[in-house]
Design a protein around this nucleic acid. Sequence first.
DNA 1: TACAATATTGTCCCAAAGGGCAATCGTCCT
DNA 2: AGGACGATTGCCCTTTGGGACAATATTGTA
Lengths: 217, 217
Amino acid sequence: MAKGQLRMSSEVPLIHIVDDDETVRSAVGRMMRAAGYQVSLHESANQLLDSLPAPSRGCILLDVRMPGINGPQLQELLDKKGFSLPIIFLTGHGDIPTSVHAIKAGAEDFLSKPASKEILLEAVERALRHYDKTHERNIRLSEYRECYNALTPRERQVFAIVVRGRLNKQIAYELGTSERTIKSHRHNIMQKFKVKSLAELVSIAEHLGRVTEPGSH
Amino acid sequence: MAKGQLRMSSEVPLIHIVDDDETVRSAVGRMMRAAGYQVSLHESANQLLDSLPAPSRGCILLDVRMPGINGPQLQELLDKKGFSLPIIFLTGHGDIPTSVHAIKAGAEDFLSKPASKEILLEAVERALRHYDKTHERNIRLSEYRECYNALTPRERQVFAIVVRGRLNKQIAYELGTSERTIKSHRHNIMQKFKVKSLAELVSIAEHLGRVTEPGSH
DNA sequence: TACAATATTGTCCCAAAGGGCAATCGTCCT
DNA sequence: AGGACGATTGCCCTTTGGGACAATATTGTA
């Protein structure tokens, strides 16, 4: 009866556990369920990749050493696919270089097995907080990219110059066309991005820039 | 005679070495000098803090365990001071949690002693590349902050609203004053930031925002 | 070939921003 | 008391931007 839907960020988080050791999977799975989380078990990286879940609120508990694709490799693959759930590494025989690399690559944490219930749950909570913090931003960002992709080549040129604060007449000169034309493009750009002010457009450009340009770290 | 000055980014980098163990200091120092770097030795975190060098191109090779202020603590202090040279940790008895924490806090690398010459030099080169990548940005950022600090309280209020794309009349209404007044503030703001267009102002605000707001990682 | 998308430009009008000149008012410090 | 600084406001004029209405040219594709 109670069909009242909770807000996205209040839904029961889904914890993905990827580990080739059945003992670990079920033990960690139990721990997570006991803490009130939903759990999805995978015995290999490929199994997770095959059933790529819609990235709902949650995180991934990922073993480092596994047959086939290992943890860090999976991390890289998911990153390339733009699939961004926080990753917490769990490892039995971790070394410092591996942990350093994983964190640099954006992992949320890097824990040694066996990890105490407290440490594990704390890490998961941190990961969920991180998810909440970045989720909205990621949504917006992909929306912006969509809008940008809807621009025509000419509009992109104008866009790039507009957001640097040039006057219409200056842009017209740079592109070898008339001021009136720039006005027209500008109008279309504003419509496609669904904004009403230059300020909003510049803000979007800054966010897009950070993604388009190299060196986010 | 050859008074030809090299560009900033081409000057001989300065490597700061902070380690309480004299043996390590001199060994690493020799290694760095042999590689053509300038070296500055410090036997404690406090000694570095006292002689806070102008942050020229270089990096810090930092021991984790030291009497007094230890490595990670120094890292945090320098960060708070806004002193940003890339930090490479060197440790004899490092553990994974410490390395994870250091990297999350922005360390460039975390190496175990003794580190081979190759590994150390590679890390230093990476750190210098990182320095080059972020240096320009940091300079600009601190300039922006200076400008912002020069704003009066009222101007800051106006600034915050202007860069969200509001019209002068809207801002006037929000602040319970007249449009003409906002124009005046706006004029002063543009002058203090030395910009000629709203777009530039918004861009600056975005950069400042990322610093002012919590959660840069 | 005809339609659709893109790029271009014109005219007219109004709203908004920028800037000059000048003045008032309150607070804080010397 | 006088001065510095910040906040406020008015008037006036110019430059820009935004939008309506309308039209032409080019190009790729159905």
